[in-house]
Amino acid sequence: MSEKYNEIPMAGNIIEPGNSLKYKTGGWRAERPIHTDETCLWVKNGTCGRCWIFCPDNAVVLTEKDGKHAYAYNLEYCKGCGICANECPTQSIHMESESK
């Protein structure tokens, strides 16, 4: 924020796409999602993914490697809305207070 007027692109143009990644929204969170692998359909067989689809902050990280499916949260961005917990068809996610 110390740039002078002639050190930034003109007219407010932001020339680096998607650079909001530098802005971490995880600090907004009052509750964090806790996920159990055991009952998760993604972990089990690579299906469902409702938590990923409906996460407004791309904070659910689903990966697949050598036929194995892994589940993680990116808590740098998770705002703790709880949509993932609410949408999980197997109750594999619940929310816990950050102050706990």
Partner: peptide, 12 residues
Amino acid sequence: PITMGPLALTDY
């Protein structure tokens, strides 16, 4: 892909 016409507040 650039972003044109963003919100710029007191800082910019």
